[in-house]
Design a protein around this nucleic acid. Structure first.
Ligand SMILES: [Mn+2]
Ligand SMILES: [Mn+2]
Ligand SMILES: [Zn+2]
Ligand SMILES: [Zn+2]
Lengths: 120, 120
DNA sequence: TTTTAAATGCGACTAAGTTGCAATTAAGTC
DNA sequence: GACTTAATTGCAACTTAGTCGCATTTAAAA
């Protein structure tokens, strides 16, 4: 677990805000935005953003921007692609897609957009 | 050309602001943001966004959000994938990538992220 | 228990994009 | 070419996700 490793290497202090945030991130089954969880958070908005950035620096979390101008975060366990619905903005994790090979590029993320089952 | 068609179908008036914007879009070789071209534009910010949205409704233009919280626009000629560098935020058009097939999904756009040649 | 750098909450701020409204203009009709 | 009118425009005010400075608090090492 990356988290434990980062703490052991003294990359950051394990505060109650960070425990709370890590718990939420670990339970989540898809990427989440601040908006998605703000009601469940006891920490301030600034604290959320500072911590999630910290987690990202330590490679505990990955993120991307969606269609709705919001940033979505998820724990970095297995690398996988994402699908974003252009109609309802729903985000799905795609586990079974093998990474594209493209000479001269080091591709780390793939995002597919289109229309989801519900919306078509 | 979609533009001509849209005008002939009287979907919109061909104002000088729209001529200017279409000229810039047609010359561009990669997706552009408002920021990228604002110095070259004689129209107001609001006019830019209203017109580019109109073009998108009429399927003359396509857009996506990048890493930098900005929306990027390009004329919709041939459908192709894009690469976004996570380090320098540069956007490249990828012409030679065949669209992914995924059952249950209607995928219209593909975005790859990673590190570009310059940055790696 | 004491120390101290790291982390927090709060309020003010930034920046991309949106909106209401009064003034302007494209384009159809004569 | 002048007349008419709905579409378009510029401007200023607004919205909203995210950032920042600073005084206060806290994790964790000594
Ligand atoms: Mn995922
Ligand atoms: Mn392109
Ligand atoms: Zn959908
Ligand atoms: Zn780069």
């Amino acid at each position: 677990m990356k988290t434990k490793q980062a703490i052991e290497e003294k990359k950051f202090k394990l505060t109650s805000a960070r425990k709370e945030l890590l718990a939420i991130l670990n339970k989540a089954e898809k990427p989440i935005s601040y908006e998605d969880i703000k009601n469940r958070l006891s920490m301030d908005k600034a604290t959320f953003y500072r911590n999630i950035s910290k987690f990202e620096e330590e490679n505990i979390v990955k993120s991307f921007e969606s269609n709705d101008k919001k940033r979505y975060y998820e724990v970095q366990i297995s690398s996988h692609a994402h699908f974003i619905c252009n109609t309802c903005n729903k985000i799905e994790c795609l586990s079974n897609i093998s990474p594209i090979e493209l000479k001269g590029y080091n591709i780390t993320d793939m995002i597919f957009k289109g229309v989801c089952k519900n919306c078509s």
